[in-house]
């Protein structure tokens, strides 16, 4: 019994790191632009399909597909911010960006159903020898994709933190997030910074999607549940906080995984959303208190 729980805990941590990575892009976009991108889950679904197709039609190993998907998503993110969101965002700079919220809701509905039309409703899986393999660490069993997911998620998170803290572009992004006017006084082209931040957000999401695809069957609505979970994580971790997203991801992963041992599977969703609502009630700035009110 102890073993079952130890395994569940370890599984939770492993998938949690990946959940955190999914939430990371959302948190970054919010932190810099104060916008909520409701199409986030759908864009994850798009990344998973790209990964699926890369493996199926190009024969790419699904780990080789990771950088490929990241690049495609980066370009997509740049284009979305530049040609779809920018005008709406500019008009709403002084108030709550409700227009972005509604627009990205439209994008979400559109993308989900577009993929329903072009890819069909069926669940599809990536095939590959390594996907079924397992390794054992200290008596606990891990699938190869699970290990890859944990390792690369953690590395990507660390890389993003380093990038934001120690590069010129990263510092510009953070400056623009803190004070738009001050940033423009410092000669930072905020429009360009937003394009790049949105694009980085999606590139990170692309990595997450490509890591998730070997573990989880893909269908047009797969993003909805992960997207909602990402929002829950962002709220748990403190909206806009990168480190918070990581720990929030681990927490949700563990709750889900351990919860599944105790409760019927559907109830773990209820549990997560219940926690989400509870956090909104009692700790709206996040569990980890990394963001000030």
């Amino acid at each position: 019994m102890i073993d079952v729980f130890a395994q569940a805990l370890a599984d939770g941590v492993a998938s949690g790191a990946l959940y955190g990575l999914i939430a990371l892009g959302l948190s970054l976009q919010f932190g810099v632009m104060k916008i909520i991108n409701f199409a986030h889950g759908s864009l994850l679904m798009v990344a998973m399909y790209i990964s699926l197709w890369a493996s199926r039609y190009l024969g790419a190993h699904s780990l080789v597909a990771v950088p490929l998907v990241a690049v495609v998503m980066f370009v997509l993110g740049f284009a979305i911010q530049r040609w779809l969101l920018e005008d709406i965002y500019r008009k709403e700079a002084t108030r709550e960006p409700m227009g972005i919220l509604i627009f990205t809701t439209g994008l979400w509905i559109f993308l989900d159903n577009l993929f329903l039309v072009i890819a069909g409703p069926d669940y599809q899986v990536i095939k590959g020898d390594w996907i079924g393999r397992t390794t054992s660490v200290g008596g606990l069993m891990f699938g190869y994709p699970q290990v890859a997911g944990f390792v690369f998620s953690t590395l990507t998170t660390v890389a993003l933190v380093v990038f934001l803290r120690h590069t010129r572009l990263g510092r510009n992004i953070r400056a623009a997030g803190q004070d738009r006017e001050a940033a423009s006084v410092l000669g930072i082209d905020s429009a360009r910074v937003y394009q790049v931040s949105f694009a980085i957000g999606l590139a990170v999401l692309g990595i997450a999607g490509a890591l998730l695809a070997p573990m989880y069957p893909v269908n047009p609505f797969v993003g909805d549940i992960f997207g909602l979970r990402a929002f829950v994580i962002v709220v748990l971790g403190g909206i806009g906080s990168i480190g918070g997203a990581f720990w929030g991801g681990i927490l949700v992963g563990v709750i889900e995984s351990v919860g599944a041992q105790l409760l019927p599977a559907t109830f773990s969703e209820i549990l997560i959303f219940g926690i989400f609502l509870a956090v909104l009630y009692f700790r709206p700035t996040g569990l980890f208190g990394l963001e000030k009110e």
Partner: peptide, 17 residues
């Protein structure tokens, strides 16, 4: 299947822009 909801999403985006 999905074409109707695709229309909703598309209209929402067009109107907002």
């Amino acid at each position: 299947v999905g074409a109707d909801m695709m229309l909703y999403g598309l209209l929402l985006m067009i109107v907002m822009r």
